[in-house]
Computed example of a mutant assay.
Amino acid sequence: MVALIDANARGVWIISATPFADNGDLDLESTDRMVDYYLGCGVDGLTILGIMGENTRLSQEESIRFTARVVKRVAGRVPVVVGVSAPGHRLAGDLTRAAMDLGAGGIMLSPPLGLRTEDQVIGYYDSFVGEIGQAVPIVLQDYPPASQVWMSVATINRVIADHSSIVVFKHEDCPGLRKLTRLRADEAAGLRRRVSVLTANGGLYLMQEMRRGADGCMTGFGVPEMLVEVCRLFHAGDVEAAEDLFDAYLPLVRHEQQPGFGLAVRKELLRRNGVIATARTRAPGPALDATDRAELDTLLARLARRLAEMGRTLPTAAQ
């Protein structure tokens, strides 16, 4: 049975890496292990073919093949959201239809480069939803550093109000805490229906975002067990324990958030954990050198000591 994403989405929706072999081909055996690992961490959903999934470095055929492998391995246990953002409707629409036919739980869609006005953003979503129909659940991605499109709260409200298929708002604007507060305030005032808000940026601002009304995160991190436990503690009402655990990991979270470079760190953590065979990214992607790996060793050693002081152990990465 296909699990669809909806406006009640909460917790951790992990942004999946895309494993590659040493020759740069898709590594589908590592993909199976990675899916098993993410599910074993207790994530609430998977999001594939995002920016950290190197979506722009895959062909359309590879994107569909990777989607098929992930959806088959997940086997309906959690929803799988597929990033379909593309410069034009044809590419995005074709991938949307293929993903949903394969059993995806929804799509993630960011406005494309080149939109300069609020009317253009509204028109883009009007035309795209008109093409694919209202039955496909959509995660509206707001990531200005990548899209170069800045959406006001008023525009976001309008797009959500106009399309019932938009059930999740992925909040990646930075700084964006006040934006998040305004979005929730507008809901409370009855200006539009409620949608799930999941945040990103590697979880860097996760605690503040959840305090301001986020339902969880749709992001990646090399030790996803931490994100899962932090969200569970927060939703159980133990906010201080959630803060304390997050604080212990913060140096590693910060290190992984280096623009352009962080993907190599995340993949190295997955490799050390035996999840993926190599930490390779596709050219011209980043790679760690010996100094980078030693730096990561130091961060992990410090994290292990801090966790020991808290009566905890480092889950599995780099053990």
Rank of each mutant, 00 (worst) to 15 (best):
I5V: 15
A7N: 10
R10W: 00
G11S: 11
V12G: 02
I15K: 04
S16K: 02
A21E: 04
G24M: 08
D25P: 00
D25H: 05
T31P: 06
D32S: 10
D32E: 11
D36V: 05
D36P: 00
L39A: 02
G42F: 03
V43T: 08
D44F: 07
G45I: 03
T47M: 15
I48L: 12
L49E: 08
G53S: 13
G53T: 13
G53W: 09
E54N: 08
T56I: 15
S59P: 05
E61I: 14
E62V: 13
S63R: 15
S63C: 14
I64K: 15
F66I: 01
T67K: 10
A68T: 07
R69I: 03
G76V: 13
V78A: 08
S85M: 03
S85G: 10
S85N: 05
A98T: 04
M100Q: 01
G114N: 07
T117H: 07
I122Q: 12
Y124L: 12
I138F: 06
Y143L: 15
Y143W: 14
Y143G: 07
P144S: 12
Q148V: 03
W150N: 07
S152M: 08
V153K: 00
A161Q: 07
D162G: 04
S164M: 03
F169V: 14
K170P: 06
K170M: 11
T181I: 13
T181R: 15
R182C: 05
R182G: 04
G190C: 13
L191V: 05
L191N: 10
L191R: 15
R192Y: 10
R192E: 05
R193N: 07
Y205T: 11
Y205C: 06
L206K: 09
M207F: 04
Q208R: 13
R211C: 02
R212T: 01
D215M: 06
M218K: 04
T219E: 09
G222E: 02
V228K: 04
V230A: 08
L233W: 00
L233E: 02
F234R: 10
F234Q: 14
V239M: 13
E243H: 08
D247Q: 14
A248I: 03
A248M: 04
R254E: 01
P259S: 08
L263E: 07
A264V: 03
R271D: 11
R272K: 15
R272V: 10
N273R: 10
V275W: 04
I276K: 14
R282F: 04
R282C: 11
A283C: 06
A283P: 09
A283L: 08
T291P: 01
E295C: 10
T298S: 15
A304G: 10
A308E: 13
M310G: 00
A317Q: 08
A317P: 00
A317Y: 00
